[in-house]
Design a protein around this nucleic acid. Structure first.
Length: 152
DNA sequence: GCCAACGTTGGC
DNA sequence: GCCAACGTTGGC
């Protein structure tokens, strides 16, 4: 899962109660579908900082709950407000995520790019803007090796 | 901050 | 259902 650290960083996540937050503001159907249809409670998630220096995976999270409607879509004061969404038929679905580890130092995208076994990661594809992307089991392991952390 | 690549919208 | 116009993303 990507986030611009100016908007929401891993430090922001850690400072939340129980290190848990709802991943609000996703307004892309493919990304929504991952949260709604693919993610299971307990699944590991890489936390990636985009639009910053360095671009990097900065830690990990767990999926912490079942999918439910993103509350911000109903809030006219929110920048994520969606006037076309209704409570009966909500458009945007999210999951809660919980902090599990921080990578020190972060695993940079440059490093990911030069590591054998990671060349297929969506993150490296040109023009890949999807803010929630699948990660293969083997990729998860290799990223953890690069981080010097035992994968869970 | 720029701008190419991408996703969505809406008129037809 | 096509596709031009528009808005957004994200690497640089």
């Amino acid at each position: 899962m990507k986030s611009e650290p100016d908007e929401f960083s891993i430090d922001d996540l850690i400072s939340r109660k129980k290190g848990t937050t709802y991943w609000e503001g996703i307004r892309n159907y493919q990304a929504r579908n991952f949260m709604r249809d693919e993610m299971q409670i307990g699944d590991g998630v890489l936390f990636y900082h985009s639009r910053t220096r360095p671009l990097a995976v900065v830690g990990t999270m767990n999926v912490a709950g079942e999918p439910y409607p993103d509350p911000s879509q109903f809030d006219p004061k929110s920048k994520y407000f969606d006037p076309k969404s209704t409570k009966d038929n909500p458009r945007w679905i999210l999951v809660d995520v919980q902090f599990t580890s921080r990578f020190n130092p972060p695993v940079t995208r440059d490093r990911i790019r030069e590591t054998p076994g990671l060349e297929d990661m969506m993150l490296l594809k040109k023009g890949s803007r999807l803010s929630i992307q699948p990660v293969a089991e083997q990729e998860w392991k290799i990223i953890h090796e690069l981080a010097g952390v035992e994968p869970k």
